[in-house]
Simulated scan of single mutants.
Amino acid sequence: MATTQHYVWAAGHFILLISALKYFFSYVTLKGASPFWFKASFTGALVSYAIVCQKSLGTPQPNIAYWKRAMMDENIQYLLLSLFWWTSKPVTIALLPYAIFSLFHVLTFTRTTLMTQFLPPGPPATAGGPPTPHPIAKRLQVWVKANYDTAMKAVAYTELLILIRVVLGAITFQNSLLTPIIYAHFLRQRYYQSAFTRDSVAFVNGRIDGYVRKEGNPPMMVVVWDRFRMVVGRWAGSVLVPQQPAAAGAAPAAGAPGGR
Rank of each mutant, 00 (worst) to 15 (best):
R69I: 01
W143K: 11
L95D: 00
K31A: 07
G32Y: 01
H105L: 04
P130K: 12
L103D: 00
T113A: 12
L107H: 01
P121A: 08
L83E: 01
T126V: 14
Y49R: 10
G32N: 00
W67Y: 14
I100L: 14
K39F: 07
F42D: 04
L79T: 02
L96A: 15
T116G: 05
V52R: 09
F101L: 10
I136M: 06
P35M: 12
T59K: 13
T108L: 04
I136R: 03
P97K: 09
A137T: 11
S102P: 11
R69Y: 05
G129A: 14
F101V: 06
T108V: 09
A99L: 07
T110W: 12
A40E: 09
M71F: 13
W86N: 11
I136L: 14
H105A: 03
Y66G: 09
L114E: 00
A45W: 04
V91D: 05
G128S: 03
V47R: 12
S88E: 13
A40S: 14
A45D: 07
P121V: 01
T113V: 15
L140N: 05
F104Y: 14
G122H: 05
I93T: 12
T92L: 06
M72K: 14
V47C: 13
P131E: 08
L103F: 09
W67G: 09
L114D: 01
L119A: 13
V47S: 10
V144C: 10
S88N: 06
P133S: 08
P130C: 01
W86I: 08
A70P: 02
T87W: 11
S56D: 05
E74P: 05
G128A: 03
P120V: 09
T116N: 07
T87Y: 12
T43P: 05
S56C: 05
W86Q: 13
L95A: 00
W37I: 02
Q54Y: 14
L119E: 03
K89M: 08
P130Y: 02
A127L: 14
G58T: 02
A94M: 06
K89S: 14
